[in-house]
Design a protein around this nucleic acid. Sequence first.
DNA 1: CATGAATGAGATTTCATTCAT
DNA 2: AATGAATGAAATCTCATTCAT
Lengths: 200, 200, 200, 200
Amino acid sequence: MPRVSEEHLERRRQQILDAARVCFARKGFYDTSMQDVFAEAELSAGAVYRYFKSKNDIIAALANQTAVPLMGLLTEQLDLDPLPTPGDLVQVIAQHVVDSSHTGGIVRLAPQAWALALVDPDAGGYVKEAMTGIRGFWQDYAVRMQAAGWLPADADPQAVGAAMFGVLPGFILQHLIVGDISPESLAAGVRTLMPYGEPG
Amino acid sequence: MPRVSEEHLERRRQQILDAARVCFARKGFYDTSMQDVFAEAELSAGAVYRYFKSKNDIIAALANQTAVPLMGLLTEQLDLDPLPTPGDLVQVIAQHVVDSSHTGGIVRLAPQAWALALVDPDAGGYVKEAMTGIRGFWQDYAVRMQAAGWLPADADPQAVGAAMFGVLPGFILQHLIVGDISPESLAAGVRTLMPYGEPG
Amino acid sequence: MPRVSEEHLERRRQQILDAARVCFARKGFYDTSMQDVFAEAELSAGAVYRYFKSKNDIIAALANQTAVPLMGLLTEQLDLDPLPTPGDLVQVIAQHVVDSSHTGGIVRLAPQAWALALVDPDAGGYVKEAMTGIRGFWQDYAVRMQAAGWLPADADPQAVGAAMFGVLPGFILQHLIVGDISPESLAAGVRTLMPYGEPG
Amino acid sequence: MPRVSEEHLERRRQQILDAARVCFARKGFYDTSMQDVFAEAELSAGAVYRYFKSKNDIIAALANQTAVPLMGLLTEQLDLDPLPTPGDLVQVIAQHVVDSSHTGGIVRLAPQAWALALVDPDAGGYVKEAMTGIRGFWQDYAVRMQAAGWLPADADPQAVGAAMFGVLPGFILQHLIVGDISPESLAAGVRTLMPYGEPG
DNA sequence: CATGAATGAGATTTCATTCAT
DNA sequence: AATGAATGAAATCTCATTCAT
């Protein structure tokens, strides 16, 4: 029973998750076989199963760590002064989607996670949590818009957050499936519809 | 029972599609086995395969006929006079989503179709087509908003349509996964953000 | 219960057998589905099953009627005067193989029947019978060769017939699978090896 | 039990091929199910599919390794001094057929391979190759017969080889299907017809 | 800690045959 | 006599997971 550093273990875990992400982005959760993951990770079946107890376990780990960078970006934006306009905010977020769809294909996992959430209660749980977090961001942003005088004092931040929530999945779907949209274009549309804080 | 009417054949097809829709809504495309469909349709394997040559064929047929009623509803809205406000429009659409999620579970298929589109080129094709149609509606609506004087004359309807596109997937995801949103609430948020044509 | 002439019935039977022969020659007994036969015969399932009680029944009928024309040809040769030399005889037989492989593909059925005979007792029975008939021809021919003074008086016609038997399957296989042999070439080889009755 | 020897792997492969040969000899390529092979090999489905990627793959492997021992025997005969007479040669070959029909049923596969060759292009390829090899042997033998003065100097070895080719399939069919022939009897017939080099 | 051979349930699809009309 | 929709058993092959080495 040789001793292995904590660090080594963590590296292996990440190696597996990276491989799985690549595979899942390429072929989806279902059409990716564990054999595909073994091959991409250059690891044996036994090795992978030492770190994750099932395929679902890998998916869950991936889903959990996937939402993190986005939430970080969003939170940053809230702390900016002056508050970014809706157009600016949307552009930053959309740009993040485009960037991360190049590096590792994280976004391609999002629609698959949504689909999984409808069918698998575990996935339902953590996808719901991630969505609630993101919507919470929009609701916080609505509060800040109110504070900036962009929205009426009696506006309902919950409702406003729910309305803005669609921007992100809307862009993801158009980017991944229709494939003909840029962050700038999306932001231009938002600026037209919600010209709060925009010059002119 | 040979020599049956054209109508009988069509009824059988629909019977199979209905059964498949129920199954897919319940367990997803992948976890639904053909046996599940046979059982739900109360038909034998051979009978189902007389009408559809593969499981994918059923999914495709379902996907194609699913987008139709929504597009009908959307088109109707464009012809109304006076033009519905963004809030009214969104409320009608969201209500349609809620209704059809009760009757037969059509909307539950949407996120699964998005996921499939990323992985299966055929699905990619028809999902893209459906999305383009829906976005086209929003772009037409943007033109009408311009004509109504709600948007500046130099606004880009393409960009505006792309921005509004997210409303629908955003509501679907919140409705199906987070489960705590009403058409009224969404519409209220939209009215706050885009008060075009709203009283006051 | 409409009356139908005996002749009509027989024509239908033959129509089905012809279709089956074409299908079997094309794809073999196993890869030919009954659906293929229905389509080729331009008849419904029920119609075909009125005339033959099973797929095996069709195969058996086909096998039985297939050997007949060849046996007819062989018997004719025995009655000729003077007796054909081995080379002449072989050439006639090989030419028959080539001809009938153009018209309807009967010969292509032979190797399939041999294979079936090893596996299916019924087929074993009638294929054995057909083979015994053909070998009987060669044994009769051996007797005639003896009478012509081409073989020693103490020769065993049974053994000679067994030895000559291979000429036909040998040609069929070379013709169908290797595909590079003519009746003339085969006959030339036979004349070289068994120059009985040949000039010079 | 990972990290097994190369030898272990090879043994497993052979174990599967042996089982398949037994099954195929018994029930034919088509009526043998993969389940039959699993049971005969005492291995699971997954195990078999680790070594062969399809049923056709097993058939191909079997066909390829089946022709080898016969070709070895034939080649040996060509090197003998003095050259075997046709009768002796045929007897040796026929005896090999009889022997190997006891040990493992290899010969029973031959007619099935012929049938398959007519229907499956892959099989067509390797069966043709094997046949060409065997016919090549007979053509070499014809050259040697010429050298021995048994055949005229102007004989065509190609044609002679083609004519002799039938001896082997002829014996196989009589042995397997008619079932009433011995190597001695076949050889006697050959000696009568082609008494080259025979005493007297 | 790592390997990878082995398992075996389960998935999709085909097809000979039947029988109500 | 003829139709052709329907049946349902069975076939091939995949794949997440385990465990002896």
